[in-house]
Amino acid sequence: MEEDLRRLEAEATALLEAAADLRALEEARVKVFGKQGLVTVGLPQMKDVPAQLRPVIGKLANQVKQSVQGCFDARLAALEAAGKAAAGAARRFDPTLPGRLALPGRKHPLTLIWEDLVDIFTGFGFSVAEGPEVELSYYNFTALAIPEDHPARDGRDSFYIQGTTVLRTETSAVQIRTMETQEPPVRIIAPGRVYRRDAVDATHCHTFHQCEGLLVDRDVSFGDLKGILYATAQELYGEGAIVRFTPDYFPFTEPSAQMAIWYGREGICRDPNDPDARWLEVLGCGMVDPQVLANVGYDSETYTGFAFGVGMERLAMLKYGVDDIRLFFEGDLRFTGQF
């Protein structure tokens, strides 16, 4: 009887193991566990077993039953896994295929510079002011202490509309509009579009952009101007950017200065001893001429201030290494897509 059971176990196991796929396994299951199946009919009825053998045979019959069931479960799991693997191979994702993405829009490099400046200067407590591009010469020249006969006023350098209306030649006009409508202290930057009567080439353009800065308060010094512009250069061009200040001349600042940056073959240079580097002018600045403060009704003994004006194309050209100003205005997406 014991041998019968062992044989039964071996036969059933062999049947199940032989199933090569899920369908064959199902057929084998019927042969093993079906109504006429090996296990169903092959296991002895306990009533037919002599009483003294019942504990032994009963235990053995249970073991066989469990063993065959275990074999079936394992086979089923194996075949299911194999099926999944086969199906998966067909729908496997190739991670080297290019992805699909809604093409992102890109900011213009001058917007990046604009936002850099706004971020830096709002951090210093400056608000962002704006003014008209079609401007009165009163704001563009007269109130900035630019004399009637100054070459900048000449029709060769500036675009005139009619009579005293011009396309603004610098964003400094916004200084006057701000100071005429606001008591000190004043802290503004004024980024915007300006115009000069220049023919277009790689470094000149009739249209370009400036960012004006103006701070008027008690006890503002030339050292403060240097400090804030130095900090700006570090923020814009990275720590270690080297700048220098030299005297310059503008009718509406005194003392006037220009800031230059140390520039090498690879762009902004952090090595003061680099033999290939040279100074490139970045911006003009100075202490607001007391006459300009007086022109807008400020007490120039109590208040002092500084102003600067920086060409935004210039900043972008130095930062990104752009060598032709025209690229900023042509809208070629192969250019703007690089930023």
Partner: peptide, 30 residues
């Protein structure tokens, strides 16, 4: 102020210590 510029020029702009202006009384804003 023109004399002040001459003093600054002869002293050397790069020898003027860098400082930051007095703190703003309100935030910068858009």
């Amino acid at each position: 102020v023109d004399l002040i510029e001459e003093v600054a020029r002869l002293h050397g702009y790069n020898n003027v210590p860098m400082t930051l202006p007095p703190a703003a009384q309100r935030t910068g804003r858009l």
